[in-house]
């Protein structure tokens, strides 16, 4: 399938939404060129606010806009969105029960050349503890567009991880999505992999292909959201799979791995293998280097599945 820049999809969808709903507004903190919203700014100059390099203020202003009925989409790098502006998002947006859509760009290793300071391995951890918040990560251009629209019409705050760069299309244009409803992409009883986001879903699909050639069949699930989490799907697939794994471009601490463990330990206790960043800080490098560095690769997934099956 043709590749499309995710940030282009992000901005096109916002423009589409804004054409229908005058309450849609967009905020940036000096990163409109990175997140791609410059074209929104050109089309709707009155509904676009660049607050400069002031992420906490951006989230506060977004909350105020929401308090007078606007639907603000505020974007910055995921590290700043969730680390620097955490208290503002927590209190002014969520505790105040407003309607702020926070976007964290460049999740996990995709921060690549910006390095450790810009590499959010804990943005899901920081957001999923916020009551009622929806935390999600689209895995391709179709899910990005559909989920962004869902987010706009959800009454309440959401946090979305945005992979900015081009990625292949996984879903048909007709596919529909719900928060808290995972998508089964491949089927097989040898293992189930609960994956999240562009990097991990694609690596998991690659692993499934390689393994199937060797007669090992695995189920790959695109979890879509960590909060709410698809409990029923997790329980039923864990029951029917020899090996259960989680796979995330994030710390295994309080990310998808923790969320899946919480569900299973309460409902169907079994051994879980959590793949992702193992309590480490980020560092600089190419995307391929970083994927290898933190074990977020099809190869590492295959190795872990085979090891577990041999035991």
């Amino acid at each position: 399938m043709a590749e499309k820049e995710m940030r282009q999809v992000y901005t096109e969808t916002l423009i589409e939404l804004a054409e229908k709903d005058p309450n849609i507004v967009v905020l940036e903190a000096d990163l409109m060129k990175s997140t791609g919203t410059a074209s929104f700014a050109k089309k709707f100059p009155d509904r676009f606010f660049d607050v400069g390099v002031a992420e906490a203020n951006m989230v506060g202003i977004a909350s105020g806009l929401s308090a007078v009925g606007k639907i603000p989409f505020a974007a910055t790098f995921a590290c700043f969105a969730t680390r620097r502006a955490h208290d503002q998002f927590f209190i002014s947006a969520n505790y105040a029960k407003l309607n702020v859509k926070l976007i964290g760009a460049d999740p996990g290793v995709t921060a690549a050349f910006n390095g450790g300071t810009h590499m959010p391995f804990e943005d899901i951890a920081l957001t999923r503890v916020i009551p009622d918040l929806i935390v999600f990560e689209p895995s391709d251009p179709v899910s990005l567009k559909k989920l962004l629209i869902k987010s706009a019409y959800h009454k309440g705050c959401t946090y979305m991880r945005l992979h900015r760069k081009a990625t292949n299309t996984i879903y048909n244009e007709t596919e529909e999505f719900e928060f808290g409803k995972g998508k089964i992409l491949t089927k097989g009883n040898d293992a189930v992999v609960f994956a999240l986001g562009v990097v991990c879903v694609n690596e998991a699909l690659k692993a499934a292909q390689i393994l199937s050639n060797e007669g090992i069949n695995i189920t790959v699930v695109d979890m879509i959201s960590v909060k709410p989490i698809d409990k029923e799907l997790i329980i039923s697939l864990a029951q029917n799979s020899k090996v259960t794994l989680t796979f995330e471009n994030h710390q295994v601490i309080n990310g998808l791995g923790s969320a899946v463990c919480e569900v299973l330990s309460e409902n169907y206790p079994k051994k879980i293998i959590r793949l992702g960043v193992q309590d480490l800080f980020g560092e600089v490098g190419t995307l391929d280097y970083l994927k290898n560095r933190y074990g977020i690769t099809a190869e590492n997934l295959i190795k872990n599945i085979k090891n577990a099956l041999e035991k």
């Binding site: 203020n57 202003i61 909350s63 105020g64 806009l65 007078v68």
Partner: peptide
Amino acid sequence: DMTAGSLGQGFSAAVGMALG
């Protein structure tokens, strides 16, 4: 009109309200 308590935050919200 606005939740406040974590100091500094209400003022940013007031700016957002004024824009809206």
